[in-house]
Structure formats: C-alpha cells, structure tokens
Simulated scan of single mutants.
Amino acid sequence: MSGIVESAGTEEAPTAQNRTVRSALLDAALEVFTERGYADAGLAEIAARSGIPVGSLFQHYGGKRGLYLALWEEFREAQERRTAATLAGERGRSVDDPIALFVAGARAYLEGAWDNRRFGRLLVEDDGPTGFDALRRQWDRAWVRRNARLLEVDEKRRAGRVRVRVLTTVIGGAARELGDCEDETEAQEIVDEVCGILIHLSAPPG
C-alpha cells in the first residue's frame, strides 16, 4: 500500500534540506496529533512547533491529512522492515519451522510497536482523516495474507483463513495495549505473554 501520501504539487528531489524539513514537520505533527487528536489539531500549531512556514507544510504534505498519512506510512514501512530483517536473520540461522518464523516476526512487530508507541497511541484513538479506515483495512488484509504464507496455511480453506485472521487480530490488539504500558519491563512482559499465546494458537488442529 505504498504511495498513500497525497502530493500537493510537483515532486521534489530528496535533498538533505527537504528531508530535514519533512522530518521536522512530521515530528511536530505527531506531537500535536498525540496531544489534541487529529480532529482538533491545527496546522498553525504544527507549523509553529516545527519552525517551518505553513506554506511549506502545504507544499510538502498538502495539509493535515497528508501529514497523518505520511506518519502512518512511515510507521508501517518501519514495521515491515523490522519484521523482514528478523525473518531474514532467523532463516539465516536455518530456522525453517513456520510457527517459529511467525512468532519471531510477531515479536519483532510488537517490539516495534513499543518503540513507536507515540503513533500507536494515536491509532488507538481511531481519530484519523476521512478514508483512513479503508486504507488501514486494505493493509490489514495484506498483513493477513502475508501471515498465511508465512504459516503455510491454505488460504482456500475457510478454517485456515479464520485461524490466520484470529492470530493477526491478537497481534494487532496487543500492539494497541503496548501504547499504555508504564515502562519497558511491562511492555516486554506483554510481548512474551502474547508470543506464548501465539505459539499455542498457531498449532494446526489435530
């Protein structure tokens, strides 16, 4: 689901200055969205906190919706890179058991959710731009399909599809809970507990 960030105009070359400006805008947007929620966040405040003029904000992101979607895409891509690297490392150690790989990927995803908990807390509020729910559902469906392939589940069988969807829902729910953890120790307890649950639930029936 790449390319969801809306462009307000001509694409700019990814110069160091552009990257710095965009990073400052995203950091400020995340702060304001987290404090006030998406609906009540103001572009003037985001611009003021970033030190970037409002006009430049529109040039780079087209407005508040573009900022939110850019934050989502940044979060999503970071999570995908993290889990992919973990799976590559496991396979490099000759791990080929589907359940072991699935749980390793789930652990990486959950630890990434803790590391990026500021945005995770924002997602829990379900206070995003119009149309975001549809984009999120689209990504969720792709996530379920990837997990089905990882677990070597026959997606043509309804029981298999349901099992993978339940497992994916468990991970998503746990990721949301991590946003409310008091500290890393509590977060790690949740990650360990959920991974134990996933091992139990991942075993094929019979």
Rank of each mutant, 00 (worst) to 15 (best):
E6V: 14
T10H: 00
T10I: 10
E12W: 06
E12D: 06
P14D: 08
T15A: 08
Q17A: 15
Q17M: 14
R19E: 14
V21G: 02
S23L: 14
L25N: 09
A28F: 10
A28Q: 11
A29K: 12
L30M: 15
L30W: 08
F33S: 03
E35T: 09
R36I: 01
R36V: 07
A39E: 14
A39C: 01
A41T: 10
G42D: 14
L43K: 03
L43V: 13
A47S: 15
A48S: 12
G51Y: 12
V54W: 06
V54S: 13
G55A: 12
S56K: 14
F58K: 11
Q59T: 12
G62K: 06
G62R: 04
G62E: 10
G62N: 08
G63C: 04
G63A: 07
K64M: 03
L67S: 02
Y68C: 02
A70P: 03
A70R: 01
Q79V: 10
A85K: 11
T86S: 07
G89E: 14
R91Y: 00
R91W: 00
R93H: 11
D97A: 10
D97Y: 00
A100M: 05
F102D: 05
A104D: 02
R107E: 15
A108Q: 02
L110G: 11
G112I: 05
A113W: 09
W114Y: 15
W114S: 07
R118A: 15
L123M: 14
V124E: 13
V124S: 12
D126K: 11
G131C: 06
G131A: 02
F132W: 13
A134Q: 10
A134C: 01
R136C: 03
W139E: 02
W139P: 00
W139K: 01
D140K: 04
R141E: 13
R145W: 02
N147L: 11
A148F: 08
L151T: 06
E152V: 13
E152P: 02
E152R: 15
V153T: 13
D154T: 07
E155P: 05
E155I: 08
R157I: 08
A159W: 04
A159D: 10
G160V: 00
V162R: 05
L167S: 11
V170K: 05
G173A: 09
L178C: 08
D180P: 02
C181S: 15
E182T: 13
E184M: 00
E186T: 08
V191H: 08
D192G: 01
D192L: 04
V194M: 01
G196T: 00
I199F: 04
L201Q: 03
P205G: 12
